[in-house]
Nucleic acid binder design. Structure first.
Lengths: 344, 344
DNA sequence: TGTTAGCACTCATCGTGTCTGAGTGCTAAT
DNA sequence: ATTAGCACTCAGACACGATGAGTGCTAACA
């Protein structure tokens, strides 16, 4: 269904205006601000057609029209002119990455803060480290109590994973360091997914080693299936500025979702092929976000980790800006992380 | 200024009622629900006195009274009867700790979730690890790029700290592992605060070691002053249920504070001697929280770490319940962490 | 002297009715 | 095909009075 040029332009004008103001837009507005050659009556006819085609909704008889999800879809897929970032914005992004990144652990948080402060939406930064592609770089046991040991696993991509082991019998601290060295040299270089098998093979060793191996083997199955997922959320309170969340209950429902780790992850995980994905309304997959849009950018790093950054806001989102910001930040982040990765 | 018994009881009734309903409470309500021996007129006289004494405010002429901060202070300090937790609640808390704590990293988050789901307020869990009391247990270098190295420090209390070093000249991965071993054996057992000095002494060693030592020494000063602070926040959206935040702007202002790490830390850090502290309104110290109350419980663990758990809500907080929950959870948490700590 | 009944007064809230203005759809003229 | 004109709709703003929960004060009472 091709829309003839004029309808197309009018629809675009309506969407642009509504994104800006959040107010239903009427024929007169379009005629004055966007299509001065045409009278409001003409616009009215076109709008009526557009409504019939499913691109517009009217909240009630005598309010203007608002774009439907179908309209946003069209807008994102075909009407979007890339909005170049301003010099200030580019500089802002660069400054974020420019700084020496000494604290790895809060890099995600810094990016999330930057994303949300630039766009005024809520941002998420997720790094998914697939367990079965990660190679163990070092293993360290730290005594915390008689029968309790902290196990620290460091992978070659720099991910650190801690867990607590419950030993059947106490092991002296000095012994533990010896065990650390033995296990570390035995297991280094293996993929995390190979650990269970390797542990099986080791279970015949000296008694202290055996004890630790047993404890590791015991907790391994529970963990080995799931990837390691690091998550940072920024600018939650930004959502409260939008008139669509003037109703506190709506706001609460949405913010609750943003407190549930699994839900956020499910929102960020899209299984499409695209690097950048825009999901509108119900496409987001969750009931609670049926009138939000989510834009995500995903990059697979050379060590198998997948980095996803995303923004969530009302369907009336500034898609142009959001897309530019995400792709720019995504690019910078990909570069810096892959450099990190030894393939600079 | 001692309040005679009756005034005292009436004030208590007013506070109780207001905490429950959030509605200004009138003389008639008190006379019917709390002091049936007295007529509303008598209550009126007493309330008038209480207002003059600064314990009550009236929003406007004909709208009942609401407790002032001074009243809450008195309430917390003198009127509070400890509210025992129900069986279900105690069990709920136990279940949180009962579970094998394999994932150390999300213990805080689990506690925060539990606190906020039990109280319907917003919770915070903070663990402050003072750098100068922590003993290094292991040091590991992981190559991430030619001139970039991930430094992982593990302390004897099980805290893991990562940072990225920028090397002046590239070091081969194999070399790096050798350096790891050397440095680890040299530095193990030292306090983190002793690292800078120790690094000075080591700077004469082999060239690769030297390079790493230099990079560590370079970033050390920036970090060595500040403690390592881990923070988890739970139930932010709970705040939106309270009528005091029906106004989205107020809600936004408060939620913004809860997105600023430093502000949260400043709210949780109180320098009193008490294990449990209740701060009301302006006592919280931040402009943005001038009509909130914050209750915190702090426990110093035997290895020097300080654990603080806290709840934030409107000044009209259920102090009784909050205090019981916090002290119960604090106790359990202290136990489990100190057991962790080798002193089981 | 402390307590209470009674009364005048205040003021937020709620429902009602009216008005206004932005919007639409339709029809007839250009 | 476009537009001017007109009747119609409907949310939002405003004014108005009624309601009722509250107060303070005074005078009577135990």
């Amino acid at each position: 269904m091709d829309l003839i040029d004029r309808k197309y332009r009018i629809l675009q004008a309506i969407i642009d205006d509504y994104i800006l103001t959040a107010l239903p837009v009427g024929s007169r507005t379009i005629s004055r601000k966007y299509e001065q050659k045409l009278s409001s009556a003409t616009i009215r006819n076109e709008m009526s057609d557009l409504e019939e085609l499913g691109y517009l909704d009217s909240p009630h008889t005598s309010a203007g029209r608002i774009p439907s999800n179908k309209a946003y879809r069209l807008y994102v897929d075909q009407m979007l002119r890339p909005l170049p970032l301003s010099v200030e914005e580019t500089e802002f992004i660069n400054r974020c990455f420019d700084r020496r990144i000494h604290q790895v652990d809060d890099l995600s948080m810094r990016i999330a803060k930057a994303l949300s402060s630039m766009t005024h939406y809520t941002s998420a930064v997720m790094t998914r480290t697939p367990r079965n592609e990660q190679v163990l770089s070092h293993l360290q046991l730290v005594p915390v109590a008689d029968r309790r040991v902290l196990l620290v696993l460091v992978t070659q991509s720099g991910t650190v994973k801690q867990s607590v082991l419950e030993l059947g019998s106490p092991v002296a601290p000095d012994e533990l360091y010896a065990v650390s060295r033995i296990l570390s040299s035995q297991l280094e270089g293996l993929k995390l997914s190979e650990l269970p098998d390797a542990l099986m093979r080791l279970s015949g060793s000296g008694s202290d080693v055996h004890e630790v191996v047993r404890a590791m083997a015991e907790q391994q199955p529970a963990e080995s299936q799931s990837d390691i997922v690091a998550l940072a959320i920024g600018g939650r309170s930004n959502l409260l500025s939008f008139p669509e969340y003037a109703d506190v209950d709506k706001a609460k429902a949405l913010l609750s979702v943003l407190e549930t780790r699994e839900k956020i992850v499910s929102l960020l995980d899209h299984h499409g092929e695209m690097e950048i994905s825009v999901r509108i309304g119900p496409e987001t997959g969750l009931e609670e976000t049926r009138d939000c849009s989510i834009v995500t950018a995903s990059y697979r790093l050379s060590d198998g980790r997948v980095n996803t950054i995303g923004l969530i806001g009302p369907t009336r989102m500034q898609y142009g800006k959001v897309l530019s910001v995400l792709s720019q930040v995504g690019r910078s982040l990909g570069t810096i992380l892959d450099e990190h990765d030894g393939h600079e």
